[in-house]
Amino acid sequence: MIRFNNVTKVYGNDTVALERVNLEINAGEFVFLVGASGSGKSTMVRLILKEMEPSAGSIYVNGTKLSSVPRRRIPRLRRDIGCVFQDFKLLPNKTAAENVAYAMEVTGQRRRTIRTKVPQILDLVGLSGKMGKYPEQLSGGEQQRVSIARAFVSQPPILVADEPTGNLDPNTSVGIMQLLHRINRIGTTVLVATHDREMVDVMRKRVVALEDGRIVRDKVRGAYADEV
């Protein structure tokens, strides 16, 4: 589903963010990408979204080699990848429902479909009572639920989350992780970049650990740190 082939990413001033990373994530997997700040997690997420190009190596998403996707086809690529960010990235002058609807409008879906689908998905993330609220009227956890609803509303095969609980308190984080877990159980491949140690340990999923741009550990039912 997602494959990194010897991927190296060097930022302008000789900063090596990723060094010869090889990683294969299969369909339906739930994978944690862990590591300290600056270890290269976000770089991997941004590469998957083709926000930038790798310096060397190739990346395949959903069977497509990203370097062969022309600029104008990027929107189509991103519609196959739901994404969730630490800072939620909601549109501030749209309500929760409108934010979710926007992701559907982007793909030109029928208004009838949007009108039935949006309440369903907001209900699924537990926000059915807050459809008309603007992001600033919602708590961090609620905003993250909206953003997950938006990422998932078109049922993309892949969902990528970059520090989804980074701005949330532990109790709220549990709810968000459960939501991601449920989405994974429906068959969506989920990749979560995080340094939320507790969360990773509780979930017992595949853990890929990054350190200074290199994969140092890849365990099928792992924890944040090596079990001694």
Binding site: R72, P75, K89, L90, L91, A103, V106
Partner: peptide, 16 residues
């Protein structure tokens, strides 16, 4: 501009 970046991330085409 932040909004437009979000739109692009959600998969909005340039023309959209």
């Amino acid at each position: 501009r932040k909004e437009i970046e979000v739109m692009k991330l959600v998969g909005a085409s340039d023309s959209f």
